[in-house]
Amino acid sequence: MRDWDDAYANSAHVPGSDKLPALWAERAASYRAGLKDFRADIAYGPGERQRFDLILPDGDSKGLVVFVHGGYWMRFDKSAWTDLAEGARHHGWTVALPSYTLTPVARISDITAEITAAIAKAAALVAGPIRLAGHSAGGHLVTRMLCDDSRLEPAVYNRIAATLSISGLHDLRPLLKTKMNETLRMTMEEAALESAALHLPRSHAPVVTAWVGGAERPEFIRQAELMANVWTGFDVPTRLTIEPGFNHFTVIDGLKDPSSPITARLVGLE
């Protein structure tokens, strides 16, 4: 029998990963301290964690990038990832980083609704095209915005130019076999409903990129390949990038670099 807990255990396979959360928080705080235009804790709902930060470019804004953090829907918040905005900000994009209510307080379906509300609120504040990005559980959440049951209003949805799912989870059914489901509390019905790869895409779906590190757990590579494969069959323009040498945690580092391939994909330069 396959060990599904090990299949999704990123930290267990990356030496020194226990020190990473403190490092992420330190880097993000240092970056925030140097920003010229940073707007914190904009409410998109009544909940304590229903807030996002906005990082504005130096000049006129080209549009909105929304980055949704990961953590298996169970941990972290927007404050650990501010520095990931630099690549897009450098190229003239306004970047929104939302927090969301975590499980087990919220169900995953509730979190999907929260991210819908966060994108709608950010879109009301920032004009122009919208580009979505998310890492791990965040990759799940941004691809859910493009599904046939998406609750985004047409005026917002039609502004989405592209979506970048980084190490995203697109079929949640295997997670039912993991110990983490004691916290996620998913049923088979909810896992299927929340799996973008099991949905039809909403009409006129924008470009979807599934990006994953070549040194990640095989299950994350399979999840990326699955999303790109399935939605290609519905005539969605999909792209799959397996970036050699990067693991689940280092694969997002390029978002801080304006010249990196992943930043170029995010902001539409390639």
Rank of each mutant, 00 (worst) to 15 (best):
Pro206Ser: 09
Phe220Asn: 02
Glu219Met: 08
Glu225Ile: 06
Asn229Cys: 11
Pro218Phe: 01
Arg217Tyr: 03
Ala210Pro: 12
Pro206Leu: 10
Arg239Phe: 11
Glu225Phe: 06
Trp211Leu: 13
Val236Gly: 11
Ala210Thr: 13
Val207Gln: 12
Glu219Asn: 03
Phe234Val: 07
Gly233Glu: 14
Glu216Phe: 07
Phe220Trp: 02
Arg239Cys: 07
Ala228Val: 04
Val207Ala: 13
Gln223Tyr: 09
Arg239Glu: 14
Pro206Asp: 14
Val207Cys: 05
Pro206Ala: 09
Asn229His: 15
Gln223Asp: 10
Asp235Glu: 15
Ala224Gly: 11
Glu225His: 08
Val212Pro: 03
Val230Ile: 15
Gly214Thr: 03
Val208Met: 07
Gly233Gln: 13
Thr241Cys: 00
Pro218Asp: 08
Thr209Phe: 01
Glu216Asn: 05
Phe234Ser: 14
Trp231Cys: 08
Glu219Ala: 10
Pro237Glu: 14
Thr209Ala: 04
Glu225Ser: 10
Thr241Ile: 04
Glu219Ser: 09
Ala228Phe: 03
Pro218His: 01
Thr232Asp: 15
Pro206Met: 10
Phe234Arg: 05
Val236Leu: 08
Asp235Gln: 13
Arg222Phe: 08
Val236Phe: 09
Phe234Tyr: 15
Ala215Asn: 11
Gly214Glu: 03
Phe234Ile: 11
Ala215Ser: 15
Gly233Val: 10
Val230Leu: 09
Ile221Glu: 06
Thr209Glu: 04
Thr232Pro: 06
Gly233Cys: 11
Arg239Trp: 08
Thr241His: 00
Glu219Phe: 02
Val212His: 00
Ala228Leu: 04
Asn229Val: 01
Ala215Met: 04
Thr232Gly: 15
Phe234Cys: 09
Ala210Cys: 14
Val212Met: 02
Ala215Asp: 15
Asp235Arg: 12
Val236Cys: 08
Arg217Lys: 11
Arg217Asn: 12
Ala228Thr: 09
Ala210Ile: 11
Val230Trp: 11
Leu240Val: 12
Thr209Arg: 01
Ala228Ser: 14
Leu226Glu: 13
Thr241Gln: 00
Val230Phe: 13
Trp231Val: 08
Asp235Asn: 14
Ile242Phe: 02
Gly213Leu: 05
Glu216Val: 08
Gly213Met: 06
Ala215Phe: 05
Phe234Pro: 05
Ala210Leu: 08
Arg222Trp: 09
Gly213Asn: 09
Thr232Phe: 10
Thr232Gln: 15
Ala224Asp: 12
Trp211Ala: 01
Trp211Phe: 13
Val236Met: 07
Gln223Leu: 04
Glu219Gly: 01
Thr241Leu: 01
Thr238Met: 03
Trp211Ser: 03
Glu225Gly: 15
Ala224Ile: 13
Ile242Gly: 03
Phe220Lys: 00
Ile242His: 00
Pro206Gln: 10
Ala215Ile: 06
Pro237Cys: 06
Leu226Gly: 10
Leu226Phe: 11
Ile221Lys: 01
Thr209Met: 02
Ala228Cys: 07
Met227Asn: 10
Gly213Tyr: 06
Pro218Gln: 02
Trp211Glu: 03
Arg222Val: 12
Ala215Gly: 07
Phe220Gln: 02
Pro218Glu: 05
Arg222Ile: 06
Val207Pro: 04
Thr232His: 15
Ala224Thr: 12
